[in-house]
Design a protein around this nucleic acid. Structure first.
Lengths: 164, 164
DNA sequence: GGAAAATAGTTGAAGCCTAAACTATCCGGT
DNA sequence: ACCGGATAGTTTAGGCTTCAACTATTTTCC
């Protein structure tokens, strides 16, 4: 069961400012990059990050994905995917097809236009990220990648423990 | 159970710049932690991260802050702060006062209830972060903090360059 | 076969967020 | 004193997001 606030506090001696500072810096870094990517997607392609992410999923799975699979991969609610898919379909970037074997399910795939659009966006996106993180040396990037892997493991372990 | 973006990408396209992998991992880490914090704020205090963040700003400035100052500190639009402030005021956690010297400006400050509520939330929040990042050693946390500082510098340099 | 449970997706209400247009007020230069 | 530009906030339209309630279909199991 989840640790409640009091318990967490009780066996959490002071000195946690340290973890808090780390978290705030992590958040700041991510937000800076994410805000810039959103800004550029909007300015250069008149699109949004969630749309881009959804197209990216489909690009990787040419056979199509069901809305549910997309929802799990993007870690968002399925209601959210319903809306995104509707907008992308209206723009002609994706098409839906009802499953032959399960009439509840429908799979989404890129249209030719969708593939074309995504290719342009994706190339630009990769360049932006490389540009923003280009100030780090290869060694720094590798070290950061490894430490973030450790952080991810720590968080996942924390979630297991309280949520399982 | 949900796949995260990074894992979902792992089976994907060849020819990936390692900056992109680094960015995806950074994003995954942040999102995991942020989602958990949002979930707990909601479950335990029936509040949201933006509300919590706004209260945190006010806590740090007992003399009060104008909406514009809050907007800049939180790095969000001023229209956004208008709405947040209205909701917090309605809950009785903050109060507004029109500036004596500038009739356009109004400053926000915590009410007694707001201070009490925030104290509880803040203590729990600090514990959650410590718990989630507790799997890292002190040395790892320090190294990560430093590398994220480098990353932040790289990003802001990139923004200067393209924005100036 | 048929009831019950699980699964796929949609909808609605509410909050968060932005950009852009708008109102009200202040300030600086002439 | 006044006009024009800056500044403080609000409003509006639209997109993103969640949760919870809902429909439709499939699966499980007796």
């Amino acid at each position: 069961m989840p640790l409640d606030a009091e318990t967490a506090l009780a066996d959490a001696p002071p000195g946690h400012k340290d973890e808090l500072r780390l978290w705030l810096r992590l958040l700041t870094c991510t937000n800076l990059i994410e805000a810039e990517i959103r800004r550029r997607l909007r300015a250069e392609f008149d699109t949004t990050l969630p749309r881009f992410d959804l197209l990216a999923q489909l690009e990787r799975h040419p056979g199509g994905l069901t809305l549910g699979e997309i929802s799990r991969r993007m870690m968002v609610s399925n209601g959210n995917v319903t809306g995104l898919a509707a907008r992308l379909e209206e723009e002609g970037l994706v098409e839906r097809r009802v499953s032959a074997t399960d009439r509840r399910a429908q799979s989404l795939r890129l249209t030719a236009k969708g593939r074309r659009e995504f290719a342009r966006q994706s190339a630009a996106h990769e360049g932006w990220v490389a540009e923003l993180l280009g100030g780090l040396s290869l060694a720094e990037r590798e070290a950061l990648q490894a430490l973030l892997g450790r952080a991810k493991a720590s968080v996942t372990a924390g979630l297991e423990e309280s949520g399982a």
